[in-house]
Design a protein around this nucleic acid. Structure first.
Lengths: 210, 210
DNA sequence: AGCTAACGGAATAAAACATTCCGTTCCGCA
DNA sequence: TGCGGAACGGAATGTTTTATTCCGTTAGCT
């Protein structure tokens, strides 16, 4: 009773997802991977890909945009969590679990972003800023942490990767816990100038390629 | 009085270093970079490279081995620092500063290691283990941290990278400080099974390529 | 039975690369 | 002052890798 209509179109629609999933896995592991690797992982032919996406760049862009949307959605969801600290840490955990950071960051520069993407990015920023501010005012966050440290944290978590994806998720949570513990109030001063967002978004600003 | 002999051979010897430096920068930024990129960055022709290294793989291997040696040397140096916690944190800071982890890890799998390298790796392991044990017994390290967390920490720090290398170093120190703060004693329990070394060395165990 | 959306995958054209080769430069010595 | 060759620069070469296209096949659907 779950699949009452294995109609041709329905099949194709389901395959849409399979392909996107495969693409995510493959490009997450290697942003420079050939498109045939995606087809293989998805268990489909190359045609199935080109039927849906005009080009490799198009696929990359779609994938990345999907990640961005997820990020945005999580940020919005976190906004309604009453406890500021919980909202903050929960948000980070979900982003790390979803491996969204790798998507949006490691793929940046491999395609030219659409206006729509820029728009979504712009909508995201204030939400994250707010989330951070709430965490800060909860008193649980160390006083010298800044919003852009979030980027560093996410980048670090994304760097944790082992062949087994389940294990990867566990290790990342452990790692995030260490980081959050380090970001908690009451420790010694952090060294050096804090990061500024323009320093960290360079991957987006310069067009194309690697 | 610094360069009394700009003799032909002396020049070449100096260029050795220039080339190795260029190679480090280039392959650190992109492990798959073409060899011409190295030549360009070094400001030399391709011949200058092939005069020194039989192949690209050979260059990669040399580079990586150099990094491994540095790692080993730092570990040995840290062993003679009397304070266990200082030895530990100082060691990490120097390794992070030298960007050695990226070298040994991101390049792994792009060449077949020499017996000499395996040997050096074997010599390194007990040193690091000892360093960790001393940090642990200093009481400053959280009780549920394990040796292999070091790998995660280094991996995370290596993931911090911005175009400006000076800034990168600063940001990494900040990030390491957060991590060390999180690794300090007295916080909440860390989640999940702790990492085991065989989980983290997969890049070395499977031969060749990506 | 016939039409065609949805494919699979070989074929193709273009790019990216590692490596080789050859002509040039210029140090060091006679 | 001229020569031999080490040390190069960088174009030419031969391969490999890839994105993209094309064409024959397989079903849903009527």
């Amino acid at each position: 009773m779950s699949k009452p209509l294995p109609t041709r179109q329905a099949k194709a629609t389901r395959k849409d997802q399979v392909i996107l999933d495969a693409a995510r896995e493959v490009f997450l592991a290697d942003p420079k991977a050939p498109i045939t690797a995606v087809a293989q992982r998805a268990g489909v032919g190359i045609s199935a890909l080109y039927r849906r996406y005009a080009s490799k760049e198009d696929l990359l862009r779609t994938l990345c945009h999907e990640g961005l949307r997820r990020f945005l959605a999580e940020a919005e969801a976190a906004a309604s969590e009453p406890d500021g600290w919980e909202a903050f840490t929960g948000f980070l955990r979900r982003i790390v679990d979803a491996d969204v950071h790798s998507l949006t960051v490691h793929l940046a520069g491999t395609f030219t972003p659409t206006p729509q993407m820029h728009d979504d990015m712009a909508r995201t920023e204030p939400l994250v800023r707010k989330l951070f501010a709430r965490a800060k005012s909860s008193g649980r966050l160390r006083h010298d942490a800044v919003v852009d440290d979030i980027t560093l944290v996410l980048e670090g978590c994304a760097a944790v990767r082992v062949p087994d994806s389940v294990r990867t998720k566990q290790l990342r949570r452990r790692y995030l816990a260490i980081l959050l513990s380090g970001l908690s109030a009451g420790a010694v001063e952090l060294p050096g100038p804090a990061p500024k967002s323009h320093e960290l978004n360079w991957r987006w600003t310069s067009g194309q390629a690697e």
